[in-house]
C-alpha cells in the first residue's frame, strides 16, 4: 500500500472579500505526478502556495506524509518549489543557486559542489555552473530552477506553471524531460498548469479546479473520456455539448451530454448507418478549419445546437475538406462515447 504524500482537508483560503480556495479535500499519493489544472483564478496556485507554506489557510488542514504542517513555515517543510518566474538569485552564480539548499543544511563545501554539479548534469546544464542567471536563456533558467529544487531531494516537489514562459517547441521537449526526470528521481511532483494538453501529457492523475473548488480528480483518461461536470467537459478538450432539446432529439434523453470531437465521424447526408449502437445527427457544415494533420468541422445540427467533429486527413487534402463548407452531412458516433454530465 503506497503512502499519502499530501492530504488536504476542507481547505479554505480567503483574501479579504475574495475566496480563492472554497473547501478542497484532496489526497496526493507518494511518487505520483499530480497535476492541478484550471483556468487562472481557479485557486490552483493558491492551493500550491498553501502546500508550500507561503500562505496559511483560513480554514482546514494540510498534511505532508501524514504530519500536520498547517501552521509551519516554508523552511520547516520538506517541500521545494519551482516558481513560475524561476526566482533565481541574480547575485549568485548558477552553481551557488543550486547549492543554496545544501549550504543552509551545512553540507560541507566539497560535497556541496559535487552534488550541485550532479544536479546540473541531471538537467543537462553541465559546464554552466559559473555563469549568472542573467546570462542564461529562458529554458536554461528553467532547468536551473529545477536543479535547485531537486538537489536537496525533497519528499515533494511543487511546480508552479514552470513551462509557461517557454515557447511551444521547448515546452513540449521539457514536458517529456520533466516526466522522465520524475520517474528517475521518484519524487512526488505536484504540477500546476492551465494547459490541459500539458496536464494530459504528463500526469498520473489530474485535479481540475474551478472557482476555488475541485471539479474532478482522476487519471488523464478518466478526465478526458468521463468528464464529471460540464465545466470539465468544456475546459479539458474542445467543448462539445448537446443540451436539453437537442439531446432529446438526437439521443432520446434530456440533460447535458459531452461527445469528444475525434469520436464523431462525418458522412454524406445520404449515408446509411445501420448500427444500433451508433447515434446519428444530420446538419449543415458551418465552418471547416484545416489544421494540417486534422480537419475540424463545425456542424449546425438540424436538432439544434452545434457539434465539432475532428477528422484525420488520411486521404483528404485542404481542397477536399474545404469543399464541405455549407454542405449537408450526417454525423455518427458510438453511443458509449456519449457522456452525461451534470450541470
Amino acid at each position: 500500500m503506497e503512502g499519502i504524500a499530501v492530504r488536504l482537508q476542507a481547505l479554505r483560503k480567503t483574501f479579504g472579500e475574495t475566496t480563492a480556495v472554497a473547501g478542497v479535500d484532496l489526497e496526493i499519493r507518494d511518487g505520483e505526478f499530480f497535476s492541478m489544472l484550471g483556468p487562472s483564478g481557479s485557486g490552483k496556485t493558491t492551493v500550491l502556495r498553501l502546500i508550500a507554506g507561503f500562505e496559511t489557510p483560513t480554514e482546514g488542514r494540510v498534511e505532508l506524509a501524514g504530519q500536520d504542517v498547517t501552521g509551519l513555515a516554508p523552511f520547516e517543510r520538506d517541500v521545494h518549489t519551482v516558481f513560475q518566474d524561476y526566482a533565481l538569485f541574480p547575485h549568485m552564480t548558477v552553481e551557488q543557486n543550486v547549492a543554496y539548499a545544501l549550504k543552509i543544511r551545512k553540507v560541507p563545501k566539497a560535497e556541496r559542489l559535487v552534488r550541485a554539479r550532479k544536479a546540473l548534469a541531471e538537467v543537462r546544464l553541465d559546464g554552466h555552473g559559473r555563469r549568472r542567471p542573467a546570462q542564461l536563456s529562458g529554458g536554461q533558467r528553467q532547468r536551473v530552477a529545477l536543479a535547485r529544487a531537486l538537489v536537496g531531494r525533497p519528499r515533494l516537489l511543487l511546480l508552479d506553471e514552470p513551462l509557461g514562459a517557454l515557447d511551444l517547441k521547448l515546452r513540449e521537449q521539457m514536458q517529456l524531460e520533466l516526466k522522465a526526470l520524475q520517474r528517475e528521481v521518484g519524487i512526488t511532483f505536484v504540477f500546476v498548469t492551465h494547459d490541459q494538453e500539458e496536464a494530459l501529457t504528463m500526469s498520473d492523475r489530474i485535479a481540475v479546479f474551478h472557482q476555488g473548488r475541485l471539479e474532478q480528480v482522476g487519471t488523464p483518461a478518466e478526465i478526458y473520456e468521463r468528464p464529471a461536470t460540464s465545466f470539465v467537459a468544456s475546459f479539458v478538450g474542445t467543448s462539445n455539448l448537446l443540451r436539453d432539446d437537442a439531446a432529446r432529439r438526437v439521443l432520446g434523453t434530456g440533460g447535458t451530454h459531452s461527445i469528444r470531437p475525434e469520436k464523431i465521424r462525418v458522412l454524406k447526408e445520404a449515408a446509411i448507418v445501420d448500427e444500433p449502437e451508433h447515434a446519428t445527427a444530420t446538419g449543415t457544415v458551418a465552418e471547416v478549419v484545416y489544421l494540417g494533420d486534422t480537419t475540424r468541422f463545425l456542424v449546425d445540427l438540424d436538432a439544434g445546437g452545434r457539434l465539432t467533429a475532428l477528422q484525420q486527413n488520411l486521404e483528404t487534402s485542404a481542397e477536399d475538406v474545404a469543399a464541405y463548407r455549407g454542405t449537408r452531412v450526417r454525423l455518427t458516433w458510438h453511443r458509449r462515447h456519449t457522456v452525461h454530465v451534470p450541470d
Partner: peptide, 17 residues
C-alpha cells in the same frame, strides 16, 4: 522581488539567513 524571499524560505532558509 517577493519571489526571491519565498524561494529562499522554500529552500530551507530561516528569516535571518
Amino acid at each position: 522581488p517577493a519571489g526571491l524571499l519565498d524561494a529562499s524560505a522554500d529552500l530551507g532558509a530561516r528569516p535571518g539567513r
